[in-house]
Design a protein around this nucleic acid. Structure first.
Lengths: 251, 251
DNA sequence: CTCAATTTGTTCGTATGTATG
DNA sequence: ACATACATACGAACAAATTGA
């Protein structure tokens, strides 16, 4: 997938028009998450909210109903609306910034391979390396606790794949490659960008359409500069966190 | 695309229910971007599309109308619908993964400082360091070509700020700190996560509500382990790219 | 205890947008 | 182009529960 292809819906923010009440709900949800309204607090009144957001009373009520269904709020006639709990925020997936932690991260996972009718095309940027003669294509969903958190579209050079076809059908491709001791990897490079879930991705990751995603494009080249692996992995944005040590003189 | 499949997209994220024709437009847009339909190509017929997505003919037409307005498609009666161009994608903002490139990245920018009525609260995690006695708070918008691409909410330790208050009101705080030669920085750490624009952010970044964003939380500590800088920077998701060199044995 | 103010709950009518056939 | 159905959104009015003076 080319640089451009990673964008997904980036240029289509204009099309993200969600219903008003969903937008209001989203704003309120964030306030709860940020602690602006703590658990037990009474939130702003319907009247205040309809003024602030310039929407009708019923629309605010629809938004609050959504959050009541999520268990975040509870309204009491004559008293007000109160915060019950905060939206849980579980960014357990710490994206890797070096090879070893990447391998560690993915080795734990058992991918669920999908049937592919229309393989994605492979695009190789000149700066990434030279293409191998042929590639095998795989698509898989990564699960954690039976919850999908990423979909991977992967190309593996055929001559690498043929060394152990069975492994590539049961394990994560990068883990298989990493275990080929005689294989010299010269470079592994990853670019990360932020996008929104399209219809297909939304279904696979059980996300709403246009939910934020992280798209990683990973390229591995061998000692001769041949691209032996090219993977596009789309992660749920709400599960991902990246730690970057900018500077550390403490040691 | 069955009704059940589309309505079953509820999740912990904001419920970004989009109209059918927007969803179809999304799918088509991505196909163009991925090169499945190249410029000049005739795309699938209305009939093929209404079958594939299980929507009415008019709905497909609405989707195509959206893309015609974007200039991506052009329909000709009796001939078909053709690709005019691909959605442009400009991820010029390469997020930094080390201190020097971070400084280089931000030094070029002239922030536009905003009046702040309600400063964000400062949260310091124990592992980040110990709090200074007092902090100054700034909020600014980062512009590029008169287009806002990030908002920063920054706390600077008061004793640092007081060494050069004027500088902190005109330049990016980290750049000012970096220029204090006698100041010993022991650690600079950044965490990056993916989120969706709330009302305030959407207005400041000229984005629709719930557009994907990258949220960077950056903490700088001095030689004594005191947090002298804590910044939350929210970037437009569509402008951001992160390059990660996982492994490089090529040198 | 009563009254008034506050706040959420409910309903009506109307208009527009979305989606189907 | 038309008829139909449902979702979204508004404004306004009124009802019901709670609170405090």
């Amino acid at each position: 997938m080319s640089d451009a292809a990673l964008t997904g819906l980036a240029s289509t923010y204009a099309q993200m028009r969600a219903p008003r009440y969903v937008q209001v709900a989203s704003a309120l949800r964030r306030r709860i998450q940020e602690g602006r309204w703590a658990i037990g607090d009474k939130i702003a009144t319907l009247e205040e909210l309809e003024n602030e957001f310039s929407v009708a009373r019923v629309t605010v009520r629809q938004a609050i109903e959504l959050l009541q269904d999520e268990g975040l709020l509870k309204s009491h006639q004559g008293k007000g609306t109160f915060v019950m709990r905060t939206p849980e925020n579980d960014r357990w997936l710490h994206l890797a910034t070096d090879w070893d932690s990447l391998i560690e991260l993915i080795s734990a996972n058992v991918p669920k391979f999908l049937e592919v009718e229309t393989p994605k095309e492979l695009h190789i940027e000149p700066e990434d390396g030279r293409p191998a003669g042929a590639y095998e294509f795989f698509r898989s969903v990564q699960l954690n606790d039976n919850e999908p958190y990423a979909v991977a579209n992967v190309h593996v050079a055929k001559h690498i794949h043929d060394r152990n076809p069975a492994a590539f059908r049961s394990k994560v491709a990068l883990a298989v490659i990493n275990e080929m001791d005689d294989l010299r990897i010269s470079r592994a490079h990853q670019t990360l960008s932020i996008s929104a879930a399209d219809v297909e991705t939304a279904l696979q990751l059980e996300l709403p359409l246009n939910a934020p995603t992280a798209e990683a494009h990973c390229v591995v080249t061998d000692a001769d500069g041949i691209v032996i692996y090219s993977g596009d992995i789309v992660y749920r944005g709400d599960k991902v966190k990246l730690n970057i040590e900018l500077l550390d003189r403490s040691s």
